Amino acid sequence: MKPDKAVVIVLVALSVGFAGGFLSRPIISPAPTADRITVAAPARLTSNEPRGTQYFVAHVDEAQRVVAGCRDGSVRGGECTTAEEAIIKIDAEERRRKFLGN
C-alpha cells in the first residue's frame, strides 16, 4: 500500500466516524424538552432593591410621587436619588426639545 493511499483511507475513516457520531447524537443524547427547563420568576417583584433611573424615566408620575415622599420624609433610601435623577433627565430632555424646536 502506498503512503498516499493510507492517508486517504484514514481521512475517509475519520469522516465516516464523525458523520456517524453527528447523526447518532440525537439518539444517544436527546435535546432537553420543555418540561425539564425551569424558568425563574422575575426577581423584581420580590426584591427590595431600589428601582433604577430607567424605570422612573418610563414612569414619571411614580418618580414625582417618590421625590415628594423624599421631601416630606415618608420615603427613604436609594429610590430618592434615582427618582430625582430621572426627573432631572426628563426636564433636560424637554428643555432640549424646546430649544431645538422638535
Rank of each mutant, 00 (worst) to 15 (best):
residue 64 Q to P: 10
residue 88 I to K: 09
residue 19 A to N: 04
residue 97 R to Q: 04
residue 1 M to E: 14
residue 28 I to Q: 10
residue 35 D to R: 15
residue 87 I to Y: 02
residue 66 V to K: 07
residue 79 E to A: 07
residue 28 I to L: 15
residue 97 R to S: 06
residue 82 T to Q: 04
residue 15 S to N: 11
residue 27 I to T: 13
residue 4 D to F: 14
residue 39 V to E: 08
residue 19 A to H: 10
residue 68 A to Q: 12
residue 74 S to L: 00
residue 6 A to L: 14
residue 39 V to Y: 10
residue 54 Q to K: 15
residue 28 I to C: 02
residue 35 D to C: 09
residue 88 I to C: 11
residue 99 F to G: 02
residue 54 Q to F: 08
residue 66 V to E: 00
residue 74 S to C: 03
residue 37 I to Y: 09
residue 11 L to I: 06
residue 45 L to W: 09
residue 89 K to A: 13
residue 57 V to Y: 05
residue 41 A to G: 05
residue 64 Q to I: 03
residue 42 P to Y: 02
residue 54 Q to M: 13
residue 45 L to Y: 08
residue 75 V to H: 04
residue 18 F to G: 12
residue 77 G to P: 01
residue 59 H to A: 03
residue 3 P to F: 09
residue 52 G to W: 02
residue 62 E to P: 05
residue 64 Q to Y: 00
residue 69 G to P: 02
residue 44 R to P: 06
residue 40 A to K: 12
residue 11 L to H: 05
residue 31 A to H: 14
residue 91 D to H: 10
residue 98 K to E: 02
residue 91 D to E: 15
residue 80 C to S: 06
residue 65 R to A: 11
residue 96 R to E: 02
residue 77 G to A: 02
residue 76 R to V: 13
residue 12 V to M: 05
residue 71 R to L: 15
residue 56 F to I: 02
residue 9 I to V: 11
residue 78 G to R: 07
residue 88 I to T: 15
residue 81 T to L: 14
residue 51 R to Y: 02
residue 23 L to W: 12
residue 50 P to S: 00
residue 15 S to D: 01
residue 5 K to F: 09
residue 81 T to D: 15
residue 29 S to A: 14
residue 102 N to F: 15
residue 66 V to T: 01
residue 37 I to S: 09
residue 60 V to D: 08
residue 96 R to L: 07
residue 41 A to T: 11
residue 55 Y to E: 03
residue 37 I to T: 10
residue 70 C to A: 03
residue 96 R to T: 08
residue 54 Q to N: 13
residue 87 I to K: 06
residue 46 T to E: 08
residue 30 P to Y: 04
residue 86 A to I: 00
residue 85 E to Q: 13
residue 12 V to N: 02
residue 88 I to W: 11
residue 22 F to N: 11
residue 58 A to D: 12
residue 10 V to F: 14
residue 45 L to N: 10
residue 2 K to N: 15
residue 95 R to S: 09
residue 84 E to H: 06
residue 47 S to T: 12
residue 73 G to W: 06
residue 28 I to N: 11
residue 95 R to I: 12
residue 81 T to N: 12
residue 80 C to E: 01
residue 66 V to D: 01
residue 89 K to N: 13
residue 18 F to R: 05
residue 17 G to W: 02
residue 13 A to M: 05
residue 19 A to T: 11
residue 3 P to R: 04
residue 82 T to F: 03
residue 76 R to H: 13
residue 5 K to P: 00
residue 75 V to Y: 03
residue 53 T to V: 15
residue 11 L to C: 13
residue 89 K to S: 12
residue 15 S to E: 10
residue 63 A to V: 09
residue 49 E to P: 06
